[in-house]
Nucleic acid binder design. Structure first.
Lengths: 285, 285
DNA sequence: GTTCCGCATGAATCGATAG
DNA sequence: ACTATCGATTCATGCGGAA
């Protein structure tokens, strides 16, 4: 099996036009946030952000397969004591563009930036906005099942009685019956809250997000041999992880420095001898 | 000291007009979500939600003190495979109304029910939107400090055995003063992500949120003797908790059944003999 | 080879100071 | 008045060197 890593240097707004429509299974990216990364990316003003971003999402909509998913990692910062509203405006504008806003996952950053202010606590979460082209899309839920903790087992055992009566009295749907099914299982489906620490000790280069973040969504929304795109590649975390997981990857980066760095880490083409499914299941992903 | 619990039966849009302007320190509420609870509240359609809610927030803006805070617990539901956007539209509209959208806390519901859908995971978080009238508002951060992480534990290990026992016993005498530095260093300010389980131990009525939720925000944004308002009282969790914490409370409920139930649980006026500060510090809040 | 401890380092935010 | 820069504040994490 052949796995490709296509890296492009340039503005994704232009580069994306060269990519075939309906060819990408997952877009996972973390664009420069408004008023952030000024020294490297110039910093887009919150008021200008939607206009800056929409032409890019238009191209992403084009290259994404109908069964594909777009996951956008972003978080508004505080401006003048208030949270900016540009992300809400972006979601509303993207819906008009044709996107479906399917879900919002929460990335809970366990080790968020420290600090103390008189009117605010530390910001320890970011948004992971899920967009789709169609209501039907590929999702491989069983790939991201998590071991059911002991607390969950004991809780379900202890409270199944009260839960059952409460549920049936309240909703009357007989939902309590389903709880008994869970007692025998050792794995559970996850929720839409992800707990991951940021990786703050990268000596060479600091990534915007930990590898576990793209890994989780690549597992969930693609299978081996699919294609993953990151139009704001940065340090290439998404592409490197996709490559490790035997997905084709496309990366676009506007800064020469980042582009060169990722280029030196991934090969354009890699060959795998074994059957992808069997080999993949054997490793830790 | 006298603590009042004022309960009103009626639509908060009307009832709020009877309440003096700039008289409330904290509004904490969980309104009926769009298209939810059809059998009890009639169910507001997502498209109508903003228009339905705005006249009420206008009155809330009036009765809130300039130093006060409005915390809105809400979560958009899935309609036809998509997340509704009415909450984002509400935030944008409330800003035009004069509110500042100061912060968005995340309530992570640790024990949401198991369940499975083909294209969606369990929803285990809700929004806690913080609005204010002014950039300056009352916030008592030290009231909600939490135990520190691991590195603090290693520091505490360096203390002698006697120091540690004194530290843990928390008996405040002359000796405790030496340890007071360690006591404060033992705790950290929280973040904007709250981890609370949904309540299971309820009687006949299902509360919208666990007591810990209003408790946390009442601790954070009010002091003893202040006034807390819940314009969508429901089962009265906010009011009952506020009452336990020696805050005056105002509750408004449109349904007779809920109104009567809460009425039977709280007294209109309660007297406290001791100094509020001293007594409050002695208990667990 | 384990475990332990020191240390740098973050998509942060505010308020004051400077241009 | 309005924007840009800087110092102070603060804490979980993982690496590397030490015990």
């Amino acid at each position: 099996m052949e796995i490709r890593n296509d890296l492009y240097l340039g503005d994704c707004q232009d580069v994306l036009k060269k990519i075939s429509e309906n060819s990408v299974d997952l877009i996972f990216t973390s664009p420069p946030y408004a008023d952030q990364r000024k020294n490297t990316y110039g910093g887009i003003r919150p008021d200008d952000y939607v206009d800056w971003f929409l032409p890019k999402t238009k191209q992403m909509l084009r290259v994404l397969k109908p069964s594909g998913t777009f996951v956008l990692n972003i978080k508004e910062k505080v401006v003048n004591g208030e949270r900016s509203t540009y992300i809400m405006e972006l979601i509303l504008a993207m819906r008009k563009q044709g996107w479906l806003w399917t879900e919002e996952f929460i990335w809970h950053k366990k080790n968020c930036y420290p600090g103390k202010w008189p009117n605010r606590f530390r910001d320890s979460w970011e948004r992971l906005l899920q967009f789709n082209k169609n209501k039907k899309f590929n999702m491989y839920q069983e790939e991201v099942m998590v071991p059911m903790g002991d607390w969950a087992k004991t809780r379900l055992k202890n409270l199944s009685e009260t839960d059952r009566t409460r549920d049936e009295s309240k909703v009357g749907s007989g939902f309590g019956k389903n709880i008994s099914n869970w007692l025998t299982r050792d794995k559970a489906y996850p929720t839409n809250v992800l707990h991951l620490a940021t990786e703050c000790n990268n000596k060479k280069h600091s990534a915007a997000f930990p590898e576990g973040l793209p890994e989780w969504f690549i597992k969930l929304f693609t299978k081996v041999g699919d294609t993953v795109l990151d139009p704001f590649m940065g340090s290439g975390t998404t592409n490197i992880v996709a490559n490790k997981m035997k997905r084709n990857s496309i990366g676009i980066e506007i800064l020469q420095e980042y582009y060169d760095m990722v280029k030196s880490q991934v090969s354009p083409v890699e060959l795998y001898l074994f059957e992808p499914k069997a080999e993949y299941e054997a490793d830790k992903y």
